[in-house]
Simulated assay, not measured.
Amino acid sequence: MKLDRRAALIAGLTLPLAAGAQTAPPGVSDKPAPAGLAEPVETIDLWPKDAPGRPATLPVEKIDQRSSDPLVADRSVSGIATPRLVAFRPRIANGASVLVMPGGGYSRIVIDHEGYDLARWLVARGFTAYVLFYRLPGEGWAAGPDVALADAQRAVRLIKTRAIRDGLDPGRVAAIGFSAGGHLCADLATRFAARTYDPVDPSDKLIARPTVAAPIYPVISMTLPVAHGGSREKLIGKHASATLEAAHSPDRNVTKETPPCFLVHAEDDGVVPVENSLLFRAALRAAGVPVETHLFTHGGHGFGIRKAAGKPAELWPELFLNWARTQGFA
Rank of each mutant, 00 (worst) to 15 (best):
S29A: 11
F280E: 02
L9T: 15
A163E: 10
A186H: 10
S231W: 01
V291F: 08
T297I: 04
E318D: 15
A7W: 09
E114T: 09
C261V: 14
S97Q: 13
A7H: 09
G229K: 13
P215C: 03
M1Q: 13
G302P: 07
A309M: 10
T161P: 03
L158F: 09
R232W: 00
L158I: 13
A96P: 04
S67A: 14
F127P: 09
R125S: 02
P312E: 04
A21Y: 05
A51I: 04
A124Q: 15
I305A: 05
A51L: 05
V173Y: 02
T43L: 01
I10V: 14
G300R: 09
R91C: 08
R157H: 05
G27T: 09
R135C: 02
A11K: 07
I305L: 15
V110G: 11
V28Q: 13
A194V: 10
A313L: 07
D198T: 14
S249K: 02
T14C: 08
K256D: 14
D187Q: 15
L263E: 07
R209Y: 08
F280A: 04
R285Y: 00
T82Q: 06
T23N: 04
L319I: 08
V86E: 06
L244A: 14
G302D: 01
R6E: 15
V41R: 13
L118W: 11
G105Y: 04
P145D: 04
R84C: 03
T43K: 04
L71M: 12
T82M: 01
D166L: 05
P225Q: 11
G105R: 00
L3H: 14
R191S: 13
D204Y: 02
G270P: 08
I109N: 06
V173I: 15
P32N: 09
E139D: 00
F133T: 03
A21M: 12
F303N: 01
I44Q: 06
P273E: 11
V147Y: 00
I176F: 07
T128Y: 04
K311S: 00
R209E: 06
I44N: 00
L99V: 05
N94V: 08
T43I: 01
G288V: 08
A213T: 12
G20Q: 11
D201N: 12
H113D: 06
V110M: 14
P312R: 06
R165M: 13
A287K: 10
R162M: 13
A38I: 08
N94P: 10
Q327N: 12
D268Y: 09
V156A: 04
A21H: 09
P52Y: 03
A38C: 01
F303K: 00
D151C: 07
A56C: 03
H113I: 02
S29G: 12
T326G: 10
G167R: 02
L37Y: 14
A282R: 13
F192G: 00
T14Q: 12
V60H: 03
W323N: 00
L13I: 14
P218G: 06
V271A: 15
S203C: 12
A51F: 02
R91K: 15
E42V: 15
L295D: 09
V98H: 10
T326F: 07
R209L: 05
P25S: 12
K307L: 12
P225F: 11
